[in-house]
Design a protein around this nucleic acid. Sequence first.
DNA 1: TGCATATATACGAATATTCGATTAGAAAAT
DNA 2: ATTTTCTAATCGAATATTCGTATATATGCA
Lengths: 111, 111
Amino acid sequence: MPDKISEMHAEICRTLGSGARIEILNALRDGEKTVSEITRDLGLRQANVSQHLAVLRQRRVVATRKEGTSIYYKVSNPKIIQACELMRQVLLEQLRESEELTKLASPSRKR
Amino acid sequence: MPDKISEMHAEICRTLGSGARIEILNALRDGEKTVSEITRDLGLRQANVSQHLAVLRQRRVVATRKEGTSIYYKVSNPKIIQACELMRQVLLEQLRESEELTKLASPSRKR
DNA sequence: TGCATATATACGAATATTCGATTAGAAAAT
DNA sequence: ATTTTCTAATCGAATATTCGTATATATGCA
């Protein structure tokens, strides 16, 4: 039985565990955007984007601001971006490592 | 449709999206441990710990080393620990913020 | 008021994840 | 060889997540 903090920690991680939501965070990297803008950027359906935003909002990964009929979303804490950046680096390092293993398995021909 | 990198990124995040797995990573913070040790530390069933380790292994969040009948697990990349640390900070900041809001809502009595 | 636009919610089907119980496999010890 | 110990894998039930479709709500405008 994981303790409460670990479970909350995991919940934040789960919140980032969707390709669409990762792309939303990337879209919000350099500032706030409206739902329409995000929807346009990602090329997903409006309802679907709104669902993902709801998940991010519930876990307070994003914050909102209302202006007229539009709602602006932004990442609530820059540390979230930093954490994402680190995990992306881990991913890229893994990919590089895989490539190297592949090369070792079938070395390119010398001529 | 999220691109491939974002989907892989999300997969790593999903891998951390379980309280038990977060606690496993915490248990491995200061070095490698065997499955038995992790199982004892967390107080979960061996089969369950092994299942979680399999998830972490598949996504290469942890790496293994065999010694006799034991298998030692460690976190594969220190950046994963760093990312977790950042997310835990985000979580703690959120909790502090909630506390403050609670205080504002029902201020402690002055005497 | 009526209508268009922006965003959120509800619902259901498909899919994925989680855990316990059980079994399998591999190495060590007797 | 048998038994014991350590770890992994399988299977099924319960639960959670995801997406599309449809609908609701709110705001601004004619």
